[in-house]
Simulated scan of single mutants.
Amino acid sequence: MTKASRGNFFEDFRPGMEISHAVPRTVTTGDVSLYSALHGMRFPVQSSDAFAQSCGLRQAPIDNLLLFHVIFGKTVPDVSLNAVANLGYAECRFLAPAWPGDSFHARSEVIGVRENSNGSTGIVYVRSTGYNQHDDAVLSFVRWVMVNKRDKASPAPQGVVPQLADIVPGDELVVPASLDFSGYDRRLAGSTDGFDDYKIGEKIDHIDGMTIEEAEHQIATRLYQNTAKGHFDAVLQQSSRFGRRIVYGGHVMNLARSLSFNGLANAAFVAAINGGRHVNPAASGDTVYCWSEVLDKHVVAGRTDVGALRVRTVATKDVSCAGFPDPQMEEAASVLLDLDYWVLMPRFGESGRGDGQ
């Protein structure tokens, strides 16, 4: 009997199945630096201890998306090692700040399964939760993934498709304890635009682009201990429908978040991900651009220093976003990512003005 694992196939999953994922992971300042180097992250609260402390935090927290991908990576060997594609996300909530030096582990529950008509694959829905070393939940999200069957003739589990919320309600967003944006320095942050300066329906071309390098996307994926075969095994991928290694969708997500700094520089925290899908795969050599639209605004109850913007960010490959290509239109072949999420942003109005004038 082999001691090596080939991972779970579609017929191994059942609704209600609970999975405790290996291996616990401590995220260090070195990991944060590598993350920043790979994706160009430069949001000030996550970049500077001094800036974070001026906002009431004890130090610069771990970037929300770094936390998301570390927890996501924990789930891959059990959920998506034999995946054809990661299809989407929903109901992602960031529940508590994460700090360099914290250790994280993850658990998942299978909440739905559905065999595809081809009989060779199926869709698996899981709700995954990340915990710190104190077993405090720091993150929860749902994702669904297309997984190969081990044997096409194997009977499929009874189909269950979960009902998922379209958005995380604004009044359920978690504002980090002790956060105080009343002293937020706009000059150091790099933008004078705060919550009250954005209008619902406004679209922003983030202008800049980043080209994906083969080594960088693989290093990034290893940073999260994501073992999905399609990102690493060039021999295996020669016979796939892609013909070469594909980029982990989270790498594209991180590049889009970093590029969005030019236009959303004060979007200090990702508070929730309402939904997202990887419209097309990316490969090394593709250049990522993105644009964003403000979908909604939420005034945080009892706070004059912070508000939440609901943002849709669309990332494209090799196509400028000046024309705001829409994934539903004919330009869809150029679209990589369509992401709907909430960000926390300082307010600079008369009653919530930061000190960086």
Rank of each mutant, 00 (worst) to 15 (best):
V110H: 09
Y224K: 09
V142G: 02
V84A: 10
R14V: 00
L65T: 09
P24E: 10
S182E: 03
V174S: 00
D233Y: 01
L38H: 00
V32W: 05
E109Q: 04
P281W: 05
G249L: 05
F13D: 13
F72C: 01
Q46W: 15
A85H: 00
A90R: 07
I207K: 14
R127E: 10
D318G: 15
P77A: 02
A37T: 06
H217Q: 12
A50V: 11
A37L: 14
V113S: 02
Y248W: 04
E11P: 06
I200R: 14
F269G: 06
V124H: 08
L164W: 06
A333H: 15
L34R: 13
N86C: 04
A37P: 02
L264D: 04
S239N: 15
R107H: 09
M17T: 08
D49G: 06
R303L: 13
K3N: 10
L344S: 10
M253V: 15
L34Q: 15
T313H: 08
C55K: 01
A220D: 09
S191H: 00
P162C: 13
G276C: 01
V76L: 11
P327Q: 02
V288E: 08
A272P: 12
V126I: 15
L344V: 04
R14K: 11
L65F: 15
Y89F: 14
D185V: 11
L236M: 11
R58V: 14
A272L: 11
D305A: 11
R222K: 14
R150V: 09
A301W: 09
L95S: 06
L339K: 03
Y125S: 13
P24F: 13
